[in-house]
Write a protein that binds this DNA or RNA. Structure first.
Lengths: 332, 332
DNA sequence: CTGAAAGCGCTTACAG
DNA sequence: CTGAAAGCGCTTACAG
């Protein structure tokens, strides 16, 4: 490996001067600057990031902590974040918290010892005390309004999205609309439930029909069974997330209940699967890839300017109508 | 941050001695060792990985280069690799090559400058000259038999898998079996095509019916259209990968062609989607998660012992029969 | 504008 | 068995 000394020697200057042009910092005469840049070019010199890291307490790497990269929501997020990170000269470290025996506690410690410059947290199973403890680390937190100081929070307007979903089912002619909500310790689940309730309560002719789910496909399957036991006559179903919507539709198809003719279904999230599934699934789309990009951008802002205040960003969702609720030809 | 000096001071020894117990290397008297360990405990000292990295030319991090983490094959792989990496004290860096303007060239350079200890390559769009150039770096390469010296290669027996798939369709009563193959610069695509051909050629009553695809869902859709134009009477379809199988089934359902009654379909890969899709898709399952684990294990072996020879590992596939080919009740 | 020197926090021959 | 010293490759006051 070539070092900054080699460059200095070849250019007839000191390492300090080379460092100055590398970092574009401090004064260097135009002439030497040109010369040094030329030598760097010729030698194909690349500064050693580890040495630089040690000197600057920096690593030029970001971490993305997700609960489970296997959940289709996260790859898209990761892709957006990795893209931006790389464009700015950062690398992206990936961490899965799910199924980790050692507490995720260790996780952040590891990151600290590596001088990770900042972390994007996209999992709910993280101890907020822990986050509190690492308040000096630049962070952006996804889908979780948190009271962490100094952090940036990015989420979607779940209530609005869920209002839109419910109203959509009404507009499509559904008379008995049920909702499968996610685990209530999850803030998004709570908000989505709330949006559904708001709409239903605003309409006298509709009744609240809710049943709990766990945000998984299997959870969707059991929830819809439970629902049909009690209310075999529902004709609209708003699932708290897309994964459950998939489970719902699978189970309905097994039961020979037609979607959307007998029951119209709408999910939430806008994961890839909804586009791909058959029937294609109506959903409230979050800008997942963009959230990944935005998270990385905001994180990098915070790294460059550590004194930024807390910031809470709320993004818009978008109703995407697909086959699973497309009853246009049926509604009166 | 506490440093090794602080520990040394508190334990009344030199930093060198602390380092020896930290690395479990060189002689340290039992008594001092105990004492030092106690102090480390009490102080909650954790060695700074960057400083260690600089001294040892090591980073305790692995990189996983995929073409597109959004392709459902990769998250599963990544999860397995990350799990093993972490268990051994390594972190996992993620890189997507797809849609990268700067050549993936840069990618490896970056890794080198960070003292990345080893890399798992799970993409085909990587320059083999480039790999050649970095022959000193421990590498494991997935799904691509490569002539890189010193590397470990992990793949699946595609030919055998594809023989199994084709024979399965025969056993289920199909008389006209077509195959959609992937892009032939991709070794897996070539091998899978070959397996299909072997079986068909061994049976006089069957005819080879193939059409090219591109390993994407949309590719599956167009391929099946093309196929049906020319051969409307096919009753079995082996898609070169699961993503194309999904496209095929979507399109067939749109055309009101029943799966498996009219056409039985089998994919290849065993991605999560096949279990989730409706109808569930018969596939030749690769042990994806395990391949991720194995890749990380082998890589770590190579890091610890840089003089290991090339190694080519071939894993078995498994036929998983699901609804899309389940004609048991129909076959004579 | 530029260089010598000290420092980032650890590791590792080397001498004892 | 142990410590002082040099080194990993860069950065950054400091003095000039």
């Amino acid at each position: 490996m070539k070092t900054i000394r080699d460059v200095a020697k070849n250019a007839g200057v000191s390492p300090a001067t080379v460092s100055r042009v590398l970092n574009n910092k401090g004064y260097v005469s135009e002439e030497k600057k040109k010369r040094i840049e030329k030598v760097i070019q010729e030698m194909g010199f690349e500064p050693n990031q580890v040495a630089r890291g040690l000197a600057k307490k920096t690593s030029n790497t970001l971490a993305l902590i997700v609960s489970d990269i296997t959940n289709p929501f996260f790859p898209e997020l990761a892709k957006g974040a990795e893209y931006i990170a790389r464009s700015h000269g950062y690398s992206l470290l990936l961490g899965n918290t799910k199924g980790v025996d050692n507490e995720s506690n260790d996780y952040i410690k590891i990151l600290m010892n590596k001088y990770i410059d900042g972390v994007i947290i996209a999992t709910h199973d993280i101890d907020s005390q822990l986050l509190e403890k690492h308040r000096e680390t630049p962070m952006v937190i996804l889908e979780m309004e948190n009271e962490i100081e100094n952090a940036c929070t990015i989420k979607v307007d779940n209530i609005q999205g869920s209002v839109t979903a419910t109203e959509h089912l009404i507009s499509v002619g559904c008379k008995k609309i049920a909702h499968i909500y996610g685990p209530l310790y999850d803030q998004t689940a709570k908000e989505r439930l709330k949006g559904y309730q708001e709409v239903i309560r605003a309409h006298d002719e509709y009744k609240e029909l809710t049943v709990p789910g766990d945000f998984t496909i299997d959870g969707g399957i059991s929830a819809v069974r439970e629902l049909l036991d009690e209310h075999p006559d529902i004709d609209g179903l708003f699932a708290g997330n897309d994964l459950m919507a998939v489970g719902v539709i699978k189970e309905l198809s097994r039961l020979k209940i037609r979607v959307p003719e007998d029951i119209a279904v709408c999910g939430f999230d806008g994961i890839y699967l909804t586009k791909v599934f058959s029937p294609e699934i109506t959903t409230i789309e979050q800008p997942i890839y963009e959230m990944g990009e935005l998270a990385a951008e905001k994180l990098i802002d915070r790294i460059k300017n550590p004194h930024l205040n807390s910031e809470h960003i709320e993004l818009k969702t978008k109703l995407v109508i697909r086959q699973s609720s497309n009853r246009n030809k049926l509604s009166l």
